[in-house]
């Protein structure tokens, strides 16, 4: 019994989620933060980027952004992304729509998980629901 109780305590310690979470926090502290990155279409064409996670710049290339109108006059945007690294990457994308004056008109309530093999190219498409939505802001995170 004398030896059993410390062993039991050790067992509880090993199975304790709080301890594991602390380990996860240390790991995250050693790596750059998982920041959200943005690419926003411009009224004159093309796009601007806001890179908050430096790691993504070495992995994912944003090749192009195309903007068009549907038959009903709603804005549709396509972003071409490429995994430029030698490893499989999983990116998560989400869209926000902005009016001509910059106010947010629509926001996608979730992240779309997009796995990308090395060198793979993918096109993510979004169509606005509101006629006032003029520009699209792509949100990107790596994990």
């Amino acid at each position: 019994m004398k030896h059993l109780l410390p062993l039991l305590a050790l067992g509880l310690l090993a199975g304790c989620s709080t301890v594991l979470e602390t380990g996860d926090r240390i790991e995250r502290g050693l790596t750059p933060p998982d920041a959200v990155n943005y690419a926003t279409t411009r009224p004159e064409g093309g796009f601007t980027t806001q890179l908050n996670d430096a790691r993504i710049g070495n992995k994912i290339e944003l090749l192009a952004a195309r903007k068009s109108k549907t038959d009903g006059g709603y804005t549709r945007v396509q972003f071409d992304l490429r995994n430029g690294s030698y490893l499989r990457q999983t990116i998560n994308v989400s869209f926000e729509w902005l009016a001509a004056d910059g106010t947010v008109t629509e926001s996608q309530p979730n992240w779309i998980v997009t796995p990308l093999e090395p060198g793979a190219l993918t096109t993510v498409t979004a169509t606005a629901l509101k006629a006032s939505s003029a520009e699209c802001r792509l949100r990107l995170i790596t994990r």
């Binding site: 109780l5 039991l8 305590a9 509880l12 304790c16 709080t18």
Partner: peptide
Amino acid sequence: SLLACAVFIVGCGT
């Protein structure tokens, strides 16, 4: 030992 066990049981979990 009992005290150590009790601490771990109470402190465990998120």
